[in-house]
Design a protein around this nucleic acid. Structure first.
Lengths: 204, 204
DNA sequence: TGTACATCAGTGAACGCGCGTTCACTGATGTAC
DNA sequence: TGTACATCAGTGAACGCGCGTTCACTGATGTAC
């Protein structure tokens, strides 16, 4: 249903590695982290359960690839938020937060996997794609400082503040701890973030 | 090593239900969420692997009990932070954040279980103990408002801001995304939280 | 205080199942001449 | 263009294992008289 160029491309399957990761993401979404097995993932990709071993050393390697894909998607969506407001660093920061929450609320199990289990692994590639996501925010913070919208100071620390707040909001919103009030997500996250931005503003 | 009143108390084992939860927490800490099985938990509690069924309907019920115990511990530690600064609502808020992070960094897998898998369950008892944790913070926010340290307004929303930020910081600190600089945890979380508190301060 | 009985927490054997992983294979694709 | 060979992605049977759960049991504790 997703990729039209299915049986056209290259080798036997085409791009089984990619298809397996996507199947894993779908399964994660539908049944949760505990439900991911190599056999089910292979089944969803319509190959035998031994086929994944041509592309992944073991189950752990597949899980890491799924987490990587999550960060890559996150980077793309955050960068899209930045591109949306070319000359307005403040709007960029708010939009990054909004897009982050959209991703996290649409894919809660994926976010849990990315931060809960995998990021504690010692995998350099994974940490590189995670850092790439973080850098989108970090760069926006730097631009906001240059524009005089945020005060000078440790931009990495400010980015960490914002990331933390938005990540925490996403997790809470996914549970029932936060009010589930009907307002728009955009207003919700922006209201919260503005409280923080006020504390980080230039004191003019 | 932990409970001295072992073979003294009451029935056959004494308090197997409690011992099973504690064994689960230890296992969670040592080997991660995926490693929790009824059989291993029973083994750690030195009973046969069928014994847990006298206290839990199934594995899921044990997992929920482990998550509940986490929130109860969190409530106690947050309340201790409040009691530490009886007449200083601002210090109370900072100390709550510090204690929260201490808990989360000491028990990362437990926190992941609590928020990642279990809180999305429809279990009323679990949500009640989670709300009890949240209320400790909420009450502190209310007192800070009354003391004129935070501006008037939706205290529940302000508490959500703070909880989000501290929760997010805890998760990030557990990964390698945040700087791992050697500073004290106390200074770290307080520096971050103060940025937010400034945005929430009365504008006097 | 002592005996008979009821309760029920914990036992240990057994079940069927799905899992990750291995391995000899097959057959489609790419390459050399 | 056509043939011979090498490569290697995907197959399907097989493995041993640990899992959750059930069940008839046993034996320690609590209760009635």
């Amino acid at each position: 249903m997703d990729n039209a160029a299915e049986s056209l491309t290259s080798y036997h399957h085409g791009d089984l590695r990619h298809a397996l990761v996507e199947a894993g993401v779908t399964l994660l979404q539908a049944e949760g982290i505990g439900a991911i097995t190599l056999r089910k993932v292979a089944g969803r990709a319509k190959v035998s359960h031994a086929a994944p071993y041509r592309h992944f050393a073991d189950k752990q390697a597949l899980l890491i690839a799924i987490a990587e894909q999550g960060f890559q998607k996150l980077t793309v969506t955050m960068q899209a938020a930045v591109n949306q407001y070319t000359d307005n660093p403040r709007q960029q920061l708010l939009a990054i937060g909004e897009h982050y929450m959209q991703f996290g609320i649409a894919h809660p199990a994926h976010l849990t996997l990315m931060f809960g289990e995998m990021l504690q692994q010692e995998d350099d590639v994974l940490h590189e794609v995670a850092r790439a996501s973080f850098d989108v925010l970090l760069n926006a913070v730097t631009r906001a400082q240059q524009a005089g919208i945020l005060k000078a100071g440790d931009s990495r620390q400010m980015a960490t503040s914002m990331w933390s707040m938005v990540h925490g909001l996403t997790v809470l919103k996914g549970s029932r701890l936060a009010e589930q009030g009907g307002g728009e997500l955009k207003e919700y996250v922006e209201g919260m973030l503005e409280q923080l931005l006020e504390g980080l503003a230039t004191s003019s």
